[in-house]
Design a protein around this nucleic acid. Structure first.
Length: 770
DNA sequence: GCAAGGTC
C-alpha cells in the first residue's frame, strides 16, 4: 500500500518528489502518465501530476441541439460533470486502488483546490480511503517539507466555490450565446456565433466605452502663449503660466500686453534632483503589458512565447501573480552567468556594487517567483531552442527587466525657471539625466534630456519670438492592449493566465481588432455592446463578474452553501435573460445589420457600409446599364445611391463623411465621392475631411507647400496656387514624417524603394542644410 | 457550435 500524491501539473510532481526523496526517486509510467516513486519513513510514495482540470461541465446530451432547445431551458438545467481527460482518470483509479492514503497537493488557490477534488472524486469511486491536503505557496524545499509534515483536511468550501463559478459561467454563456446567435440567424445568413460571457463581454465593454467617448467628443478651442527665448546663443521655449487658455479674449489681452517685449528677466530658478526607480519584478500581467507596449507583441502571443521559453529552460514559469522575490532568491549565480555576453556590462555593474538589492513589489500570490531568466543564452541559442518569431525579443525583455530591477535608480537634474516677460510669468523646464542607473539596461523607456543654457537668477534673456497659437483639444485615444489588460486586472476580469484569451475571443468573434498596438472596435462589437447596454447594462460592465465573484466568495467563506449560491446566481442570470429577450426583434434586427452577409463577405471589395434604412449591408452593384450602390436586403429594402460613371472605385474605409454620406470612395486618382451626397469637391468640408499633406511654408507667397499626387506624377504645390512647385522622388513609397528639418523647418520625407533601405531627407530641395 | 479556468 502506498501514499498517493496528486499535483496540479507534472513539473510540480517531479519537483516535490525530488525534495521529499532527497533526489532518490524512480520515474514510472501509469497509463503513459509520469509517476514518481520513492520510499520515505518506511512508506511507499507515488506522486503524479495532473494537467489542470481533468473534468468539465456540460449540458446533458439532449440539450445540445441548439435548434431544438429553447436557450431559456438551459437556465433550469443543471449541467453534468464529465471526465475530459480519460488517461488521467484511469491513472488516478489505478493509483488509488493500491493506496492507503491520498494527498492533494495542487496549487493553493480556488482552482487548485477544485482540481484536487476532481482527483479525490475519481479516487473515491474505487477505494474508500483518507484524503489529505498539502498546502504550500512555493516549491521551495522548506515549504514543501513543512506542508507534507503538517497535512490538513481538504477545503470543501473552497473547492465548491470554483464549482459554482463553473456552473454559473456555463449557464450564462450558453444561454445568452445561443439566444443571440439564433435570433440573429433569423435575420441574416451567417454561420458565425455571437457569443456573450461574463469575462469576454465586459472586456469588450471597456473598448466600447472608450469608443463612445471618442465618438461623442466635442473638441474645444484653446490658446497657448509661448515665448522663444535665447541666452548665450542657445534657444529654449517658455510657456505662459496660464497654460491652455480657453477664452480667446483673455489670450488676446495677455498677448497684446507683451507682444512687443524683446527681453525677459529670470525671476526664479530652482534645481532639484529627481529619481526614477527601477520597475518591480515581472508578474504575468505586468509582463504581458510590457510585451505589448514595448515590443508590440500581443498578450496571447507573449504568453505562448514565454511558455515555450519556460519549457526550453530559458526563463521561469510565466504564470504568476507575484512581483516580489523570496528572501533566499539566488541572484548571484544568475548574474555570474550573465557576466559574459551582451549583458556583461550590467551584470558586472550589479555584482561590483557589493550587496545585491532588488526593488520588490507588494503582490504575493504565494505561487511562483516573478518571471526571471533561468539561464544566460545568446540570440542564436534562443532562436534554435524556441521556434517562435518573437522569442528573442521576449527573452531579451525578461533579462533586461530582471537586471534593471537590481540596478540603481536613475537620477535626473530638473531645472525650473520663471521668466518675466512684460510682467507675465513664463515657465521653462529642463532636465539632464545625471545617472542613468537602470535606464542603461532598459532601452524600452527612453527619457530624453531637455537641455537649457546655463542661466542664473536676475539674468536677462532675449525674446526672439512670441506666439499666441490656437489649438483644439483632442479626443481620447483608443485603448492599447496594455491598457485593456490593466483595466481587466483592476476589475478582476479573468485571471493572470486567461486575460489574453478573453481578448483573443473578442477578436475571433469579430468584435474588435488590433491596429498596431491599439484596439479598434468593429461594427458587430459596437452594436452588440450598444444593444446590451440598452437592455442589460450590467453585462457590459465589470459589475457582472463582480456579482458572480461575490457569490462564490461567500461559498468559499462558508457563508453560503453551493446550492444557495447556484440558485441566487441562476436567479440573477434569469433576470438578465428576460431583460434581453423582451426586445428580441429589435435586437436581432440591429445585430443582423452588422453581420457581413456571407455573399458579401466573399466579395469584400464591394462592401460599402451600413444601410441607414434597414441596418443591413450596402454593396456595389454593376449591371450592363451602369453601377450603383444597393442594399443586400433587396428586395425587402430598395434603398439605392448613384455612383460616378467612370473611374476605378475604392472605398476609403478610414474616412467618414461629415455630412452623413454612408461611405467615402476614391474615384480613380482624381477625387473623392461621398455615397449619398456626391463628389467631395463640391462640399465646403472637403478641406476638413481631406486636409492637404503640408510639408512646409511656400517660399514665394504666404501659402503652404503640399503633396499633389496625380495619376502619373507627384510633386509639391502651393495651397494658394501661386505657381511655385518643387519636385519629389518619383518612385518608391513616400511618407511625410512628423519630424521637422532642423535647418529649414520643413517636414522630413521617407522614401522606400522596393528591396532597399528607406531613405529620409528634408522635403525642401533648396534646404540650407544640404 | 456555447463560458472560463486549469495546463501540454
Amino acid at each position: 500500500m502506498s501514499i498517493v500524491v496528486f499535483t496540479e501539473k507534472n513539473k510540480a510532481a517531479s519537483q516535490i518528489a525530488s525534495i521529499l526523496s532527497g533526489g532518490h526517486f524512480n520515474r514510472a509510467s501509469v497509463e503513459s502518465i509520469p509517476v514518481y516513486d520513492f520510499k520515505m519513513n518506511g512508506k511507499e510514495w507515488r506522486i503524479m501530476g495532473l494537467a489542470g482540470h481533468i473534468m468539465g461541465y456540460d449540458f446533458p446530451e439532449q440539450f445540445n441541439n441548439w435548434r431544438e432547445c429553447d436557450p431559456a431551458v438551459l437556465l433550469d438545467t443543471p449541467p453534468v460533470k464529465n471526465v475530459t481527460k480519460k488517461p488521467y482518470a484511469a491513472a488516478i483509479s489505478l493509483l488509488a486502488s493500491g493506496a492507503e492514503e491520498v494527498v492533494l497537493a495542487c496549487d493553493f488557490d480556488r482552482e487548485g483546490e477544485n482540481i484536487g477534488f476532481e482527483a479525490k472524486e475519481i479516487a473515491e469511486r474505487v477505494a474508500s480511503l483518507p484524503v489529505k491536503r498539502a498546502r504550500f505557496s512555493s516549491l521551495s524545499a522548506s515549504e514543501i517539507k513543512n506542508a507534507f509534515s503538517n497535512l490538513v483536511e481538504p477545503d470543501y468550501n473552497m473547492a465548491m466555490s470554483a464549482e459554482a463559478r463553473q456552473i454559473l459561467d456555463l449557464k450564462m454563456g450558453a444561454a445568452f450565446t445561443r439566444f443571440m446567435t439564433l435570433s440573429v440567424r433569423e435575420k441574416a445568413r451567417t454561420k458565425g456565433v455571437i457569443s456573450i460571457g461574463p469575462c469576454q463581454t465586459p472586456t469588450c465593454g471597456f473598448v466600447y466605452e472608450r469608443e463612445k467617448l471618442i465618438k461623442n467628443f466635442k473638441s474645444k478651442d484653446f490658446w497657448k502663449i509661448e515665448a522663444l527665448l535665447n541666452s548665450k546663443g542657445a534657444d529654449f521655449t517658455g510657456v505662459h503660466r496660464a497654460g491652455n487658455i480657453h477664452e480667446k479674449e483673455k489670450a488676446n489681452e495677455i498677448f497684446a500686453r507683451i507682444k512687443d517685449c524683446k527681453t525677459g528677466l529670470v525671476d526664479k530658478k530652482s534645481v532639484k534632483e529627481a529619481r526614477t526607480n527601477p520597475p518591480y519584478p515581472l508578474n504575468t500581467t505586468e509582463f504581458l503589458k510590457r510585451a505589448s507596449k514595448f515590443l508590440g507583441v500581443s498578450p496571447e502571443e507573449a504568453l505562448e512565447t514565454a511558455e515555450q521559453l519556460y519549457l526550453s529552460g530559458f526563463t521561469s514559469y510565466p504564470r504568476t501573480e507575484t512581483n516580489k522575490y523570496a528572501d533566499d532568491f539566488d541572484f548571484k549565480s544568475k548574474l555570474v552567468a550573465f557576466s559574459s555576453g551582451i549583458y556583461q556590462k550590467y551584470a558586472l555593474t550589479i555584482l561590483s556594487a557589493g550587496e545585491i538589492t532588488c526593488r520588490n513589489g507588494t503582490k504575493d500570490g504565494h505561487d511562483h517567483p516573478p518571471i526571471h531568466p533561468i539561464k544566460a543564452a545568446s540570440k542564436d541559442d534562443i532562436e534554435k531552442g524556441v521556434r517562435m518569431p518573437n522569442a528573442w525579443k521576449i527573452y531579451d525583455l525578461v533579462v533586461r527587466h530582471f537586471l534593471a530591477n537590481l540596478m540603481e535608480s536613475a537620477i535626473f537634474e530638473k531645472t525650473r525657471l520663471e521668466i518675466l516677460v512684460g510682467g507675465e510669468i513664463f515657465d521653462v523646464t529642463g532636465s539632464i539625466l545625471t545617472n542613468p542607473g537602470w535606464l542603461d539596461v532598459y532601452p524600452f523607456e527612453t527619457k530624453n534630456d531637455k537641455l537649457l543654457p546655463l542661466i542664473e537668477e536676475k539674468d536677462e534673456v532675449a525674446v526672439k519670438e512670441l506666439k499666441n497659437t490656437k489649438s483644439e483639444t483632442t479626443p481620447p485615444k483608443r485603448l492599447t492592449e496594455a491598457e485593456l489588460l490593466t483595466l481587466m486586472d483592476k476589475h478582476g476580469i479573468g485571471t493572470k493566465a486567461t486575460a489574453p484569451s478573453h481578448i483573443e475571443t473578442n477578436k475571433k468573434r469579430g468584435y474588435f481588432e488590433t491596429k498596431g498596438k491599439t484596439i479598434a472596435i468593429l461594427d458587430t462589437g459596437f452594436t452588440l455592446m450598444d444593444t446590451l447596454d440598452a437592455t442589460v447594462p450590467i453585462l457590459v460592465q465589470p459589475e457582472i463578474r463582480a456579482r458572480i465573484e461575490s457569490l462564490i466568495q461567500d461559498v468559499e467563506d462558508g457563508k453560503k452553501s453551493l446550492e444557495s449560491a447556484l440558485s441566487e446566481g441562476t436567479t440573477l442570470i434569469k433576470q438578465m435573460y428576460s431583460q434581453l429577450t423582451s426586445s428580441k426583434d429589435a435586437i436581432a434586427a440591429r445585430m443582423a445589420g452588422t453581420i457581413v452577409d456571407e455573399q458579401v463577405a466573399t466579395d469584400k471589395k464591394n462592401f460599402v457600409g451600413t444601410c441607414p434604412e434597414c441596418g443591413r449591408m450596402l454593396h456595389m452593384i454593376k449591371t450592363e446599364k451602369g453601377r450603383f450602390v444597393g442594399c443586400t436586403g433587396y428586395p425587402e429594402c430598395k434603398n439605392t445611391y448613384p455612383l460616378p460613371k467612370a473611374g476605378v472605385l475604392t472605398v476609403l474605409r478610414s474616412q467618414q463623411c461629415e455630412k452623413g454620406g454612408v461611405a467615402v470612395m476614391k474615384v480613380g486618382n482624381k477625387y473623392n465621392w461621398a455615397v449619398g451626397i456626391g463628389p467631395c469637391f463640391t462640399c465646403d468640408l472637403e478641406k476638413k475631411c481631406f486636409p492637404p499633406e503640408i510639408v512646409g511654408p511656400c517660399p514665394v507667397c504666404d501659402g503652404s507647400m503640399f503633396l499633389i499626387t496625380t495619376k502619373d506624377s507627384r510633386f509639391l504645390g502651393c495651397t494658394n496656387r501661386c505657381g511655385h512647385t518643387q519636385s519629389v522622388p518619383k518612385s518608391g513609397r513616400l511618407t511625410i514624417l512628423d519630424r521637422l528639418c532642423e535647418h529649414c523647418g520643413w517636414h522630413i520625407l521617407r522614401v522606400k524603394e522596393q528591396k532597399q533601405d528607406a531613405e529620409e531627407f528634408c522635403a525642401n530641395r533648396k534646404c540650407s542644410g544640404k
